[in-house]
Design a protein around this nucleic acid. Sequence first.
DNA 1: TCTTTAATTAAAGTATATGACAATCAAGCG
DNA 2: CGCTTGATTGTCATATACTTTAATTAAAGA
Lengths: 110, 110
Amino acid sequence: MIDDDALNATFAALAHPARRAILARLAKGSAHVNALAEPFEMSLPAVSNHIRVLEKAGLISREKDAQFRLCKLETRPLQEISNWTNQYRHIWDARFDAMDALLSNIKDTD
Amino acid sequence: MIDDDALNATFAALAHPARRAILARLAKGSAHVNALAEPFEMSLPAVSNHIRVLEKAGLISREKDAQFRLCKLETRPLQEISNWTNQYRHIWDARFDAMDALLSNIKDTD
DNA sequence: TCTTTAATTAAAGTATATGACAATCAAGCG
DNA sequence: CGCTTGATTGTCATATACTTTAATTAAAGA
């Protein structure tokens, strides 16, 4: 299971609200570290570390631009967790169908 | 952001391969704790703790049956991370389209 | 060169996660 | 009741996560 490690890293990275907020910000466009840190109460080193975690999980990439680091959202890990989640979709579909049938039945006998 | 805590718990729970393996097993049907622990090298208390983490995240529920605990997969948190991931789907769609256009262009000028 | 800006690294503290083993609880059975 | 089975709780050790402050690197500009 080679991508087991990848899933571990991706899920762990997404488990922190600050990191999800950073991704949400990057979904609107690439940004530098200071700009990403600005909305947070946290210190800059703390944000820098969150960015490092996101990069190690492949959720973002960083491009050097003089003394700046331009951070960009990467979607591959998100696609992977989407695929992983889809393994279970038939189960919630089945339960929804069962619920639906139950409700129809109640309505019919009403 | 009330469901921020829920997402934290769900993503953190899914970040451990043993816990994902337990969910995969439960996708095939409900099972008792000992049955869930059987495939693992880990001690039973360790598995019991993983199950506790999954339950706190709402990913499973437990039903008492004499001295047994029947564990059942719950899909709501999985649907929630599916929804969360869908926020980003337009980005990877857009990038795929851009890549597609680029490849078409290369083929046209070939 | 000296300074400013952008960002990372280092050191340190607190907290939480993981897992082992031992002990315990709870329920059913002889 | 005493025993077995299923599962949890307690205690401990190790490791990793999160955050801060202080210091450092890297690049640009006066």
